[in-house]
Design a protein around this nucleic acid. Sequence first.
DNA 1: GCCAACGTTGGC
DNA 2: GCCAACGTTGGC
Length: 155
Amino acid sequence: MSHWLFKTEPGCFSWQDLENAPGRTTSWDGVRNYQARNFMRAMRVGDLGFFYHSGQQPAIVGIVEVVRAAYPDATALDPENRHFDPKATPEKPIWEMVDVRLRRALPQPLSRKDLAAWPELAGMELMKRGSRLSVQPVEAGAFAFICGLAGIERP
DNA sequence: GCCAACGTTGGC
DNA sequence: GCCAACGTTGGC
């Protein structure tokens, strides 16, 4: 099993939104970065990921589970959608998305500041300066370490 | 609001 | 294929 991190602006889509979503499940649509797309292509059903809020209070707030592997992102084909991509076609959708389901909230959000205090996490993509990837891999060791910090025994 | 980092675009 | 200009992200 692989581990991931899903980054989102809470003003755009938040953990609360996920809690309110039907089936507590959402499509991770709108990703328009090839590297992030390729990471989603590598995801398998059952993979776990952190749910990260960027913005004013950057923090890991919960854990989600991949419940559907990558499939074409329909928002790229919709001219009304803010993520519309004129280069995408039904034959060549270019962009893909996965579905994720809420697994559990962290007992307390783990702020970026908290995370930065641990040298063990210095190598994480998330902690690198200028890291902008909205979907990124997390090493199994780092995933377990962070679960430990959060006081979670079973993610 | 600032600015560093990075991806994308387009002229050549 | 190079690279400058530009736009966006996101922490602070």
